[in-house]
Structure formats: C-alpha cells, structure tokens
Amino acid sequence: MNRYETFIIFEADLAEEDRKMVLDRVGALVSDSGGTTILFDEWGTKKLAYPIRKKNQGYYVRMDYCGRGPAVEAIERILRQDTRVLRFMTVRMEADADPEALKAEMATSAQEPASEEPAGESTEEAAKETTEEAEAHASDAAAETETAEEPQIAGKE
C-alpha cells in the first residue's frame, strides 16, 4: 500500500454539491479498492498561475490517501472524463505506507490544530534567517579565502 496525494482543481464557479459528488465518488473508489482516505484538504478558490481552459481561478482540493496503483488509475480515469475538473495531479508520497499508523498520527495532530499556523509562520521566519546566515557565512568564507590566498601570491611573486 502506498500513500498518495491527489490535487484536484475544479472550476471556481462550480456549485458545492457538484464538487461533493465528485469527491464522494473518488473517496468511494479508494475505500472500494481496500484503501483508506486520510483527509480532504480544501484549499478553496485560488488564482491560477496561468489560465487553464480560459479560466483564471480554480478551486483546489488536496486528497491524501493510502491505496494501490489500480485505485489511482480508476480515480484518474474519472477525473479525466469530468469536464468540470480543470486539472489533477497525483504524487506518491511514500511507498509501503501503513494506513493505521498514519491515522493515529493524524489523530494526534488534530488534537492541536492551533499549532499548525504558527508553525507555518516560523518556517517563513526561519527561511529569512537562513538567507542572512548564509550571507554572513559567505562573507566569512570570502574573507578566509582571501587570507589563504595571500601567502600563495607572495610565494609566486
């Protein structure tokens, strides 16, 4: 059993019931083939980086599940046929995943949902910090090479 992640981009002006219908059908496909759906993460309406089928906006849904290859094929077949789906993409996150362990993990992280957002902010801050650090390192390193090269030059001359 592998862990997959499928992104589905619906038309932004699609009614919620229609979206639900597709998602329910896809979810049913996962469980029918012996897999487990972990979560449906709805990102909501977002601006697309480039127009798809002349649409500038799309409704993003991320689906996280455990299953086998044939289940993915079946899901993708349905999504391909559905004209209301602008784009989809499946990525294998993990080979030989254990759905039970993942569910337990999800349950513990769900108990503290507030911790998710500050974590995101801190990573952003961390990113900024690293660039500063990296620059500091770079200048240090440059200084080191300079001093190291000095005797060489003197020797050659």
């Binding site: 990573t123 990113a127 390192h137 770079a138 390193a141 090479t145 090269e149």
Partner: peptide
C-alpha cells in the same frame, strides 16, 4: 577573481527546516 569570489551556500543544507 578574488573580488568576485563569493562562496555560495546551499540554503537547504544550511537549514533542514526549510522544506
């Protein structure tokens, strides 16, 4: 060359938190 030399560091190696 020494003037332009500047050691670059891989950002993802420098910070393992950055995914």
């Amino acid at each position: 060359r020494r003037f332009f030399h500047r050691r670059k560091v891989c950002r993802f190696c420098a910070d393992s938190k950055l995914r």
